[in-house]
Design a protein around this nucleic acid. Structure first.
Lengths: 219, 219
DNA sequence: TTGTTGATTTCGCAA
DNA sequence: TTGCGAAGTCAACAA
C-alpha cells in the first residue's frame, strides 16, 4: 500500500466526466492496483477513484490510471508532501454476523415467527425470475412465499409480487399467499403490501438468535 | 487527516457484528471524525469503518469510536508502524457531468428524441407517490409519461408502471402511455416493458448534448 | 459473461 | 428529521 499526500488536480473520464480542482489530498494506491483520492471529509468514500483491475502509469507530475474498458483517471501533481509505501500482507478478512442470509436461515428453522402451522418446503425456491427466499405450506395446504429482508421497502414488495404471480400459476402450489418478513418495515412498503394482499411480519433478529437451540432444550 | 499504519484487531458492533483478526492495516482518520480501516485490497471500500458524526476515544493500545446511535468500533492496536497527520484544508469538491438530471433536462428540450409531435407539460410532474420525470402531450392529445434513467432496468419499469396507474385515473390526463428513456436498456427491462405496453427509447447522451443549442442556430 | 440481489450500502434532495 | 431515489454505486453469487 502506497500513501501519497500531494497537491493535485484530477480528471475522470468514463461512465461520466468529473473534475477536481487543485488541492492537497491523499492518494491511496493499493496492492490490487486500485487508486483512490481522499479529501478530509465525505466519510470513507473517496472523491474520485479507479477500481481494479487497472494500470497506473507514472510520469513526473502526471499519473494516468486506465482500465480495460477505457475509463481514465488523470492526476496532475503539483507538489508531493509525502510518499510512503507499506507492506501489509494478505488480510485475514472480516467475519460478519447479522445479515440477511442468517436471518433467512433462522426463519427457516423457526417458522412460528412467521405464522402458526407452517412447514418448510425449501429455502431459495427457484422460479424462472429468481429464487424465492422461503417457501412454506400452511395447515390448510396453501403455499406461503416469504421474502426476507433486513429492511422491508417498496422494492421488496415488488419483488415478492413478481414471485407470487409466477407461483400462483402453478396448480401444485395454488393458492399462494405472500409474507414480507423484515427486522423493520417502511410505512410505504406496508401500504403497498396491504394493497397487494401481502402480509407484513416484523421479526426480532436478536430474539430469533437467542431462541435458536444449539442443543435441544426441555423448556 | 491522520494516517496510521498499525497492526490491529477490530470489532464493530452496531447494525451487525463484525470482527477483524490482528493484521497490519491503514487507519484513516478524517477531519469529519470518520474512521476507516483499509487493507491492501477491496478497492476503495474499507474493511470496517465508522461514519461521521462520531467520537474517537484514544487509550494506549485501544481506540474506541462511537456514534450517537450506539454503534461502536473497537480497535485494539498491537504495534504502530507510522502515525502522521496532514492539514488538507477544505476541498473545492467534485464537478460532475453526465448524470440523470442532465439527461432529463436535455430530453425536456429535445422531445423529438422521444417521439414526434410532443409538447412538454412539465418536468417532475407530481403524483401522490412521487414525481414523474417528464410529462408530455402528443399530437392526438394523449398524455405521455417518461421515466428517464441512465440505465434502464426492471426497477425503472416498475416505477413507471406505478406512475402510469395513478396518472391514468386522472380524467384530465387519460389516456396515458409510458416511455422508458435511457442510454442503455437491459433486455429484461425491455421484455417487462413490452408486457406492460411501455415503449423503450434508447437515447444518445453525446448526441443530445451536441445538438443542444447554446445559442440559437439557423441550421 | 450476464443478470440478480444485498449492502453497516452512501449520498443528496425534498417534504 | 425522515423518506425516497440515484450511484462512476460495489461485490458476491448463480445461470
Amino acid at each position: 500500500m502506497r500513501l501519497v499526500v500531494a497537491r493535485c488536480a484530477v480528471d475522470y473520464d468514463g461512465r461520466l466526466t468529473a473534475h477536481l480542482p487543485m488541492a492537497v489530498r491523499l492518494l491511496l494506491v493499493k496492492a490490487d492496483g486500485s487508486v483512490s483520492i481522499h479529501a478530509d471529509g465525505g466519510a470513507y468514500k473517496p472523491l474520485n477513484w479507479m477500481s481494479p483491475p487497472c494500470a497506473l502509469t507514472e510520469q513526473p507530475g502526471l499519473w494516468t490510471v486506465r482500465n480495460k474498458t477505457g475509463e481514465t483517471l488523470t492526476i496532475t501533481i503539483d507538489e508531493v508532501m509525502s510518499d510512503t509505501s507499506w507492506e501489509l500482507g494478505a488480510d485475514p478478512g472480516l467475519v460478519k454476523d447479522g445479515v440477511e442470509a442468517h436471518l433467512q436461515a433462522l426463519l427457516a428453522e423457526q417458522c412460528e415467527a412467521i405464522g402458526a402451522g407452517l412447514r418448510l418446503v425449501r429455502r431459495e425456491y427457484p422460479t424462472d425470475i429468481g429464487p424465492v427466499d422461503l417457501l412454506f405450506r400452511d395447515a390448510a395446504g396453501a403455499t406461503v412465499a416469504v421474502e426476507v429482508k433486513r429492511r422491508g421497502e417498496i422494492d421488496g414488495v415488488e419483488q415478492l409480487t413478481r414471485y407470487l404471480e409466477r407461483l400462483d400459476r402453478d396448480p401444485l402450489l395454488r393458492p399462494v399467499r405472500g409474507v414480507l418478513a423484515a427486522q423493520e418495515i417502511k410505512p410505504q412498503a406496508k401500504v403497498l403490501a396491504g394493497q397487494r394482499g401481502i402480509e407484513c411480519v416484523v421479526v426480532d433478529y436478536d430474539e430469533l438468535r437467542g431462541r435458536e437451540p444449539t442443543t435441544p432444550r426441555l423448556f
